[in-house]
Every structure is written in structure tokens, then in C-alpha cells.
Write a protein that binds this DNA or RNA. Sequence first.
DNA 1: TGTCAAAACGAACGTTCGTGCTATATTAGG
DNA 2: CCTAATATAGCACGAACGTTCGTTTTGACA
Lengths: 240, 240
Amino acid sequence: MTAVNEAVQEGGGRPSARARRAHGERTRQAILEAAVDIASEEGLEGLTIGRLASELSMSKSGLFAHFGSKEELQLATVEAARAVFVREVVGPAFEAEEGLARLWSLCDVWLAYVRREVFRGGCFFAAAAAEFDGRPGAVRDRVAEIMKEWLALLRRSVSEAQAAGQLGREADPAQLAFELNALEMGANWAFQLHGDRQAFARARLGVLERLRRVATPDGLPLLPAPGRAKGRAPRGGSKT
Amino acid sequence: MTAVNEAVQEGGGRPSARARRAHGERTRQAILEAAVDIASEEGLEGLTIGRLASELSMSKSGLFAHFGSKEELQLATVEAARAVFVREVVGPAFEAEEGLARLWSLCDVWLAYVRREVFRGGCFFAAAAAEFDGRPGAVRDRVAEIMKEWLALLRRSVSEAQAAGQLGREADPAQLAFELNALEMGANWAFQLHGDRQAFARARLGVLERLRRVATPDGLPLLPAPGRAKGRAPRGGSKT
DNA sequence: TGTCAAAACGAACGTTCGTGCTATATTAGG
DNA sequence: CCTAATATAGCACGAACGTTCGTTTTGACA
């Protein structure tokens, strides 16, 4: 974990010896950018050093020198993916006002994050979680931690919506967060495996109905009108 | 696919030349049994021939001869897992009467199938789908096909419940099937990644509420009473 | 009991994996 | 200009991968 902290360490670093060679840091960043893309498609284990090196036209050893081991590379990749996720999902969703609007925004932006293929292989963490849930180690721990953060964020948003009187007190935040997350990941699964774009509309509808059911009269106007999907609305066609 | 069919072929085979050496078939079965366990934990790619051979105390080459290639081994493993799934989930659920009772049974038995750890790594197909959704090939196609079967089964059960007047006509079978499946896979995800057994109760509750909302007065008595979990009821303790 | 195909084996192939060691460009401070 | 630190390259390693080959064991039937 100390290694992780060192790897993640960014922002206000000491420029004395660390950033003297800023070139190295830029290379490292470029490596991680490619790593995140590969890993989201082929998995963090399928992310091979040789593959990554040839993708960037550099030598294995030159690339390898930036990370002490493959596990460090994986951890750094996870961290880079987290940064992307925060930038692409959490950030935009937080432009909505605290409460039900933000809760809805989190769900909505998340679906867009998968549909827009921010990562080529769908949600990076859904893939990483499935890959590592059976192998103990630092990578698994970090991935689990990050997904716990996300779930906690959903839960907190539910609570805030309740505090604002937009969601009924009878709703269990943890239960609601679980269900919302499940619907979203269900859409990710259907899209990745079947290429089913309808799944986004289904997840959206499911989330919306679920929220509307526990919304108070104060909260209801904060949700989009029913019966109409935002991006692509599937008209008829519910042929078995 | 022909290879798969041949691989799966069982039951009433011609004993003339095929079953003369029945020993080979038994060995093959033992291999697949172990393969399914390993693959559900380490993935179908992590399922290595050397690892599998040493697990069974046989030579790599002897084992390999049963399948012509690694891909054939993976396909046979998927087929074996499907057989287990049918035996452990579909079969038991079909003891319930057609209609809402069976639909509920499918969901309930599925959750038990994950909780009982029929496969050590959780739902075999959820894991395989996540692993292969980004790599074209026969394995991916077969896994997608099987999961489509499952979703179609849920959808058909919804329709049958509607036909029996136990679920309202206003419910979209495909939408409902999507949501039920998502909740179930959400429980699998939470259990595998966080070891969270509460997830089963949450998924159960979510499914139940979702079904109860579209159930007709005729259908309602077919669902378990609310507020009480069947297998293991988590009493207190919802500590974050 | 001798035959013969199925089944299992042992050894090796060529490749790729992660990981070290050593050397060479590149660059900033003295 | 020299020097020290950094970044990248070159090369080789041991292990594991899937796969092939030729051989040996085995067991049912003539």
C-alpha cells in the first residue's frame, strides 16, 4: 500500500528531484492512458507489458522502469482509471444541485459514461471487479475500495435527498443505492455482451420508476418526465 | 459448434465404438468438473492446462488429448457449467407451477445458487461474460447465447404469469426481465467483491417489491410475505 | 492368450510472460 | 566542459504457456 501511495502521489509533489525530469512523468502519463484503454478491453491481466510497449513504440524495459513490477503497473492503471471516472462522471454530476437532482444526475451521467464508451471495454471497474474478485491482493483491494466509494456516494446522495424532503423517509438509502447500482451495471453488462443499446433506456426507466416511487411531491418535479427517454428513445417494438 | 455438440452429446450414445472405452468419457467428465471450478474462480483464460493437469495428477498431454485445443476445452467447460446451471437452477425452479410462482422461483433459486456457491467464484456466466465480452470468438458467442437463453426464460415466465392473470398486462416482459436479472447479478457482484451476504436480502427485497408492484390480486398470494427473508434473515447490523 | 485401439505419458517445441542487469543517450547544475 | 542524475534501449534469464510427437500402458474382445 505504501507503494500505491507513492505511485498515486501527484498534485503537489516536491519538484526538487522528482519533477526535474518532467519528461519522464509525461511518458508515464502516456503509458497509463494507453494502459487504461487496453485494460478495459482485455482486462488488467491481459494488459501485458510487451503489448503495451509495442503499442507505444518503446522497449519493454524502458516502459518497465517506470513501474517496479506488473502489480504496480496495474495499481497505477486503476488509479488512472479512477481519475478518469471522477472527471467524467462524478464531476459533471456534481454540477447538479445537492439532493434528488444530483442523485438522478449520478445515475444518468453514469449511463452516458458507458454509452459514450469513455473506456473501450465499458465500465473499467465493473470489468476489473469481475476479473479480480477471486484473487486476493492489492489490486483487488483497491478496486473494491473504489467501488465502495461509488456506492457510498450513491447512498449519501439518497440521504441528502431525504434531508431535502425530496425522497420519503421510508426508503432505505443502502437498499436504494444497491438497486440503482445494479440497474446501471445491468445496462453495462447487456451492452458489452450483446451490444444491446436498448439496455440504456431500460436501465434509465428502471431507475426513474424506482426513484419516482419514493419521491415526495417536492421531489417529483426534479425528475425527467416519464415515458420519454433522453438520448435515444425506443419507440415501439417490445416483440418478445 | 459441431465440436460443442459432439462434446455435449451424452445420454443415449451408440456403445459400439464410442463407449467401448467408457473410461475416457469418465475422465473427461472429471476434467470438466475441475475445470468448471477453476474457471469460475480464475476465469476461462486463467484456466491453464498445466494447472488443470496437476490438479488432477495427470500429464498435460494426456489431458490435452481429450480436447483438440484450448478453445475446445473452454467451450466444453462452458457447456459443463451450463449443465450444472440447468440442474441447480432451472430444474428446481420448474417444480413451481407455471406463472408467477415459477418466475419468483427462478429468481429465488438463482440467488440461492450464488449463495450456496455452486461455483466457487459465483455465477459462472457472469464471470465468463465479463471476461470475454471484449474478445470475439466462439467462447464469447456461446456465453452470450446462454445468457440470452436465461433472459428469454425470465421474459417468457413473465408472459406466462400475465397470461395466467397474475401479473398486470401493463408490465413489459423484456423490461421486467432486465430489471430482475440486473438485481440478481448485482447481488452476485456485491457478494463476490465485498463478501456482502446482505446483498442477497437486498436483491430479494428488490425483486419482491418489483414483482408485487405489477402483481394482480390473483398473483399477490403467490409471493412470499413482505418484510421477512427466507434463508438467512439479517437481523440487525446494517453497519455501513 | 494375443491383438489392437484408446488412453495416458514424458519430453520437447517455439513463444510469451515478467523481470532483472548493463549500457547509452539526454539534460541540468557546477 | 564536466559530472551526476534520469530516461530509455538492448539483451538475456527462467518460468509458464499451448501444442506436437513418439512411446508406453491398459483393458475389452477375438
